[in-house]
Simulated assay, not measured.
Amino acid sequence: MTIRIVLADDHQLVREGLTALLGREPGLEVIGLAEDGAAAVRLVRQLEPDVLVTDVAMPGLNGLEAVRRVKQQQPMVASICLSMHGDQRTVVTALNAGVSGFVLKDASADELAHAVRDVAAGRIFLSPCLMGAVVDELRHHHRHTDAATPLRPPQTLTAREREIVQLFAEDLSTQDIAERLHLSAKTVATHRENITRKLGVRGVAGLTRYAVREGLSTVDPAVTA
């Protein structure tokens, strides 16, 4: 049976390259390409693939938020995140978002194909070099919490609030965000006030640091400090 894939990355060259690589693998077919997270969510809804393969860091709606929305709307679709970054926080955040696989972008085509087949079969796949980060997090979790406690507390922000945090972290103005999301500037400003109060942070710099920490953005927080 052919495994049908939707692929999301904001770089056209990467999309085309991965499509060519996966297309050479028997039993795998890329049926849709998306340039950002919002397009990925729409394509998954329209095409009903077996697997979503998405970059983590994309403008507008990042890969992790796209995965969260896909899991809510179509929980049978397995997701794989691709990233240049294999740090502990990014990997664990992705797993908590609902991904079934996490593959570094310097992995081989064989490794990515293996990941696609594994998650399509209901298994978890991590690039081998990432296992240490996950094991370290589990050890830390069991040392400092009750074993029944989730790895991280539930999300304190709504999907809309996380989207707005990402856009502020990407240096969009209140008016830019309002136009992007088809909201009034007053509504965006109200969201920002609610978000900063919830998180206990101040200004765009605080929102950016939160966005980077939670995997919503890869912007360097020092830039806005």
Rank of each mutant, 00 (worst) to 15 (best):
Glu65Cys: 09
Glu35Tyr: 01
Ala169Asn: 02
Arg209Thr: 07
Glu65His: 09
Asp87Tyr: 13
Glu25Thr: 15
His144Cys: 12
Arg68Asn: 00
His85Cys: 05
Val165Tyr: 07
Gln166Met: 10
Pro49Lys: 13
Leu130Ile: 06
Ala205Asn: 03
Arg42His: 15
Asp110Pro: 07
Val53Leu: 06
Asp106Leu: 06
Leu181Thr: 08
Leu47Trp: 05
Thr149Val: 08
Ala148Arg: 15
Leu199Gln: 07
Phe102Ala: 11
Ala40Ile: 12
His144Ile: 07
Arg24Ser: 11
Asn62Met: 02
Val212Trp: 06
Ala205Gly: 12
Arg152Cys: 09
Ala8His: 02
Asn194Ile: 00
Arg197His: 09
Gly27Ser: 00
Pro153Ile: 11
Pro26Cys: 10
Arg42Pro: 03
Leu199Tyr: 04
Leu52Asp: 05
Thr2Met: 10
Arg192Met: 08
Leu104Lys: 07
Arg209Phe: 00
Lys186Ser: 15
Gln166Lys: 05
Leu18Thr: 03
Glu35Val: 01
Val219Phe: 02
Gly60Thr: 06
Gly32Ala: 08
His182Lys: 15
Thr208Ala: 09
Glu29Val: 05
Arg15Gly: 00
Arg4Asn: 04
Leu52Lys: 12
Gly203Met: 04
Ala20Val: 14
Leu64Thr: 03
Leu28Arg: 00
Ala178Trp: 10
Glu137Val: 01
Asp118Ser: 11
Ile177Trp: 08
Thr158Val: 01
Leu138Phe: 08
Glu137Cys: 09
Val165Phe: 04
Val91Ile: 15
His182Asp: 15
Asp87Trp: 09
Ile80Val: 14
Leu43Val: 04
Pro153Gln: 14
Ala78Asn: 01
Asn62Ser: 02
Leu47Asp: 00
His144Tyr: 12
Ala8Pro: 01
Glu29Met: 08
Glu111Pro: 06
Val70Gln: 07
Leu167Ala: 11
Arg143Phe: 04
Ala133Val: 13
Gln166Thr: 09
His144Trp: 11
Val44Ile: 06
Cys129Glu: 13
Ser173Lys: 13
Val219Ile: 10
Arg202Ile: 06
His141Tyr: 06
Thr208Gly: 01
Tyr210Trp: 14
Ala159Val: 10
Ile124Lys: 03
Glu16Thr: 14
Val77Tyr: 02
Ile31Asn: 00
Glu25Met: 15
Val14Pro: 10
Glu16Met: 14
Val188Ile: 15
Ile177His: 10
Ser100Phe: 11
Pro26Val: 11
Arg42Gly: 07
Pro59Thr: 11
Ala107Asn: 08
